[in-house]
Design a protein around this nucleic acid. Sequence first.
DNA 1: CGGATCAGTTCCTTCAGGGAACTATGTGTT
DNA 2: AACACATAGTTCCCTGAAGGAACTGATCCG
Lengths: 150, 150
Amino acid sequence: MQRTRFGDMACSIARALDVIGEPWSPLILRDIYVGVSRFEQIQQDLGVSRKVLAERLKWLVESGVLKRRQYSDRPPRYEYTLTTKGIELCDLLLVMVRWGDRWLSGEAGPPVRYLHHGCGRIGHVELVCSECGLPMHATDVDVLPGPGAA
Amino acid sequence: MQRTRFGDMACSIARALDVIGEPWSPLILRDIYVGVSRFEQIQQDLGVSRKVLAERLKWLVESGVLKRRQYSDRPPRYEYTLTTKGIELCDLLLVMVRWGDRWLSGEAGPPVRYLHHGCGRIGHVELVCSECGLPMHATDVDVLPGPGAA
DNA sequence: CGGATCAGTTCCTTCAGGGAACTATGTGTT
DNA sequence: AACACATAGTTCCCTGAAGGAACTGATCCG
């Protein structure tokens, strides 16, 4: 980790970073999301060192984002799956993808596309307000102190 | 950074992490978004080391997320502002906040709330499909190879 | 028995982060 | 003129995290 722990700050961004802010963690989450769910597979797919991978998986399981499941008794074999908390965290990945596609994919175009089950079309995520359904971006909101303010 | 650079991977998540994935970067972005825009202010607000803060600001400017603007000639004083690319990156923060509020804020409730200009109510972001407007979460899509695939 | 697979753990080296001190430039104060 | 003060960094040393390769242990295959 990055030495300073963010988990105790009165800031949901900092707390979220405490869970998935470490190097490789979002990519590990992505792999498990798309079905690359075993230690060896993830290690080879990402090229992350085995040491770091073991540390990250342990932390993500402790944080309740992943579950470690034994899918074979003999020989003992394990896979990692997403919890509900982890699945919802994947929303973050979709938004990262959207931004990366727009600003960093260059000539070649986006490396992957997303087929939406709801309409059967290729699309991307848009952010809307939970209350009125209109677009809700950083410029469309005012930040106010909440009940859990410092 | 975390030794291994992610910028060359054929993955928009990895590319986005290359820009914003280093420790402190999302918190620096948040500070600038809410108006904490000068070196001293950010350093004191976050408690980040001056060395790391200088490195991150430099990289975020090089990446086109921030602009360094001189707002006083004598004495020379600077502030950091968001580019369009940077403002759009703040969408990511809104989604992180939403997840952190839901899963990590505990008893006290969310530390901040968001007032939506569009409807004047306190709300949070929801993800919908750009094509049909229906909810679009990680479980609602299939991942397909795109033109820029590896 | 030897070799292969999976899931890690251990070890060593290098480099990034923490933290304090220092620099540079200009302002206001006595 | 001398001094403190503010901003925006830079430099230094020390510690700890990441990279990478080797090693462990359990089990199956031929």
